[in-house]
Design a protein around this nucleic acid. Sequence first.
DNA 1: CGGCGGTCCTGTCAGC
DNA 2: TGCTGACAGGACCGCC
Length: 275
Amino acid sequence: MPELPEVETVRRGLIPPLEGHVLTHVEARRDTLRFPIPKDFGKRLTGRKVLAVRRRAKYLLVDFDDGQVMILHLGMSGRVTMSYGRPNAYEKHDHLIFESASGWVLRFNDARRFGLVDLTTIADWPNHPLIKDIGPEPLTDAFDGAVLAVAIKGRRSPIKIVILDQTVVAGIGNIYASEALHKAKIAPERPAADLSRADCDRLAVAIKQVLERAIEVGGSTLRDHVQPNGELGYFQHEWSVYGRTGEPCRICTAAIEQIVQTGRTTFFCRTCQPA
DNA sequence: CGGCGGTCCTGTCAGC
DNA sequence: TGCTGACAGGACCGCC
C-alpha cells in the first residue's frame, strides 16, 4: 500500500497528535519486524517530546527533543491507526504503541512485517544505511528530466524497473510506476537508456503530477485518523491503468493490458504507450 | 556496477 | 464450506 503519497498522507496525519507533544508511553509488542526492533525501544522514547514528523522517500522520520530520530517504514502492509484515548483492545498485528500527551494513541499495525523501525540521531540519520543511497525527492527541484536522464544513463533494464529503483528517484512504487509511464506515454518495457531527453522530461513531469494528485486526494480524507484501515484514499478511483486490465483506456478506449516484469505486474495501454 | 531471482510474512481471493 | 495456490502497495541480499 504505501508508496510516497500514502506515506506523505500518513505524515500529515501524524502532525496534530504528535508534534510538540510528549510521548507518555511507548511500547514495542514484539522483538522483530523486518529487522530487530532496537533494544529498550519503549524506554528510549517514553517521556520524549516530538519536535517534527518528516519524510524521506517512503521513510517517516520523527525527531525528538533529545536528538533521537525514529525511522519508520511501512513496508507492504504497514499502517498507522489513531484513537483518542486508549483503544478497548489492540488489534492483531499492532506492533508499536505510542501514547501522546495530546490524548491520541497511535498504533503501528503490519501484518506482513515487511515494515521496519530503527532509532538514529539528528546528526546521523542521513548516513543511515537504509537512507544514504536514496535518490532525489521527486516533488522537489532536485528532480527533473535532466536529473532523470543522468540517473538512467547506461541502464538497459526496462524503464518500469528502473524507476522503481529508489536510488534513481525516491518513493515510486509499483502503482505509480505504471501510472506515471502511462501519463508520459512511454512503454514500460523500453530499455531505460533508450529514452530520449524529451521522454525524460515528460516522465519527470508525469511522476510529479501523479504523486501530487495522489497526495491531494489522499490528504483530503484525513480527519481523526490516519487513513482508515490503511486504505489508499480516493486516488484509487482515479487510476488510469493500475488494476484495470481489460477495461478501456480513459484516453483512447483501447483495452488496458498487463505484463509481469521482474515478478511484478505492470499495467499499460499499448495504443498510448507504443513499444 | 548492473541485473535478476529468492526471500522475509500474512491475508485475501479465485477456483476447484 | 474447505482447501490450495497465486498474488499483494517493498526492498535487501547474494550470485552471475
